[in-house]
């Protein structure tokens, strides 16, 4: 059931992403998606496999559901945030977007815990997750700025 709901949401998000007008160039999209996967998976592997601070599910179907979260839903939401924040003119709107995306990603992590896809160990502090997602969004934003500067030299955006 969990796999159906999460993969259903991921595919719907992916479809909506593909059929709506994008503010991001294809090349930016590819590079940023890989970058997001890179930092997310590296940190997840370090936290889960090396430090054992979070335990990933041992059920194969739940693991596939978790994959939808980390490989599709989280990168797509972050890319949508980057698109939105890059066209916002008012600072207040930008601040709202920043806070919104960090809370959203934080909420997704705890929803995954609630659904049994991963489990934080008892000593885990909620603000570690919050700090991680804030850093994740900040890094994504910096990467997007850098890639956009390179892309603008070669293509129209």
């Amino acid at each position: 059931m969990v796999i159906t709901v999460i993969w259903g949401a991921a595919l719907f998000l992916l479809l909506s992403f593909a059929v709506t007008k994008r503010g991001l160039h294809l090349f930016e999209g590819i590079i940023i998606w890989v970058f997001l996967l890179f930092i997310e998976n590296n940190v997840l592997w370090l936290v889960c496999m090396n430090a054992k601070l979070i335990e990933m599910t041992k059920q194969e179907l739940d693991f596939v559901a978790l994959d939808a979260l980390r490989s599709v839903i989280v990168p797509l939401l972050t890319i949508l945030f980057l698109e939105k924040v890059s066209i916002r003119e008012r600072k207040s709107g930008q601040v709202r977007d920043w806070i919104g995306i960090v809370f959203l990603l934080f909420g997704i992590e705890y929803a995954a815990d609630f659904l049994g896809l991963l489990q934080h160990i008892s000593t885990w502090q909620w603000w570690w997750s919050f700090s991680w997602w804030a850093a994740f969004v900040l890094l994504s934003y910096a990467m997007h700025r850098l890639i956009r500067r390179i892309a603008k030299k070669d293509v129209r955006i």
Partner: peptide, 14 residues
Amino acid sequence: PMIVATAFFSIGLG
């Protein structure tokens, strides 16, 4: 072009 080469490097890594 630079942006294209970067994207090609990203694909293999990804």
